[in-house]
């Protein structure tokens, strides 16, 4: 009866798990694109008119209707859209014919710009914001969580708990607004942020993003601090912690090595889950600080009802969120190999 169990978990099992996850990502992405396409192109009202914009002449509207193949059944149109995504597409804008290369998300009829191009120019800003902020919130959040689990029951823990609670309860645009007014407006410690390309001037890039990073990070950090603290406390109550204490292992090692390890997996899972909300936060941050990222562009596109841009951006953001989730799942499985056994 005392044999080995579950030995297939490491080699083949793990690769299989990653493969299954990858297929899942593809399916999810397809499904999301279908949903988004259907929702946005089966809206009430004249789609061609909406897409073209309010200032379009009837002729232009007719042209857009042709481009979108509004006479074809929906699935044909969707298939056409997919085709453009994979193979590229040609658009005729009145006189000239524009070629839209491979990952073609369509054409903005209001600005005559290709959506893919538009997104590519805005993407670095948003990625700078989100990734920089993520580094900040992970360090701040996990650090605070560990500290308050470590100082459990003391004054410092209560203070930290209070601060994180306030962080959780403050909407990102309120924090950002207050930070901007206080730091840039009143104290004049920093100039009002102005995006600078990383490749142009890394120092200025970081300086200018400092405040947006901080506003976005503070809220997420609060959530992580709470999760880290509670996961650690949960782990500290587990039997194996008792074992190490009963074997004379010091408290530093018990907390730093064993309890912290138990908080790993939940933190990874939360980080993936929060990518979606962080993207939402990024939209607000970009709008607030006037950073020319995807979020601000999306708000603009929504304002003027530029459908191809909206659809393209929602798809791209969805793509990143799904990928982030899948990556986290794999990381999670690495952190907790027992998951793969399932």
């Amino acid at each position: 009866m005392s044999g080995f169990m579950g030995n297939g978990s490491t080699g083949n099992g793990f690769a299989g798990f990653v493969l299954r996850r990858a297929v899942g990502v593809l399916v999810t992405l397809l499904a999301i694109s279908v949903i988004i396409y259907v929702v946005f192109y089966v809206t009430p009202g004249n789609v061609a008119q909406i897409t073209c914009g309010p200032r379009c002449s009837p002729a232009q509207v007719q042209q857009v209707a042709d481009q979108l193949r509004l006479d074809d059944p929906l699935y044909v149109r969707y298939w056409h859209f997919l085709e453009g995504l994979v193979a590229g597409q040609d658009y005729s804008t009145g006189t000239a014919v524009q070629h839209c290369p491979a990952p073609c998300l369509g054409l903005s009829y209001q600005s005559d710009q290709q959506v893919t191009e538009l997104i590519l120019t805005k993407l670095p800003v948003s990625l700078s914001l989100v990734f920089g902020s993520m580094v900040m919130w992970l360090i701040l959040g996990v650090g605070t969580g560990v500290l308050s689990a470590w100082r459990r029951g003391r004054l410092s823990e209560r203070v930290l708990t209070g601060v994180t609670l306030v962080g959780v309860a403050t909407p990102v645009f309120v924090i950002g607004l207050v930070l901007m007014i206080v730091v840039c407006g009143e104290l004049e410690l920093l100039p009002f942020p102005q995006y600078v390309n990383l490749t142009d001037d890394p120092e200025q890039w970081a300086w200018n993003l400092l405040l947006p990073w901080l506003s976005l990070a503070l809220i997420e950090a609060a959530a992580f601090a709470r999760l880290t603290r509670s996961s650690m406390l949960e782990t500290l109550a587990e039997d194996h912690i008792r074992t190490f204490r009963a074997y004379g292992v010091g408290e530093r090692s018990v907390i730093g090595r064993h309890a912290l390890r138990g908080a790993f997996a939940p933190v990874i899972a939360l980080n993936a889950n929060n990518v979606g909300s962080a993207v939402g936060g990024a939209v607000l941050t970009e709008t607030l600080f006037g950073l020319p990222g995807i979020g601000r562009e999306l708000v603009h596109a929504v304002d003027v009802v530029d459908l191809p841009v909206v659809v393209g951006m929602v798809l791209v953001v969805g793509f990143f969120v799904v990928i982030a989730n899948a990556l986290a799942d794999v990381l999670y499985a690495v952190a907790d190999r027992r998951v793969v056994l399932a």
């Binding site: 709470r226 603290r229 996961s231 908080a263 939940p266 899972a269 889950n273 027992r338």
Partner: peptide
């Protein structure tokens, strides 16, 4: 557990007494 994971983690995120239901789950079923 994978389904339960995200759900429990989100719930946990905004609450003081979150649990790592995941690890407990695995242990229980192992």
């Amino acid at each position: 557990r994978r389904e339960a994971k995200v759900a429990s983690v989100t719930a946990a995120a905004s609450v003081t007494t979150a649990t790592s239901a995941v690890s407990a789950t695995s242990v229980a079923s192992v």
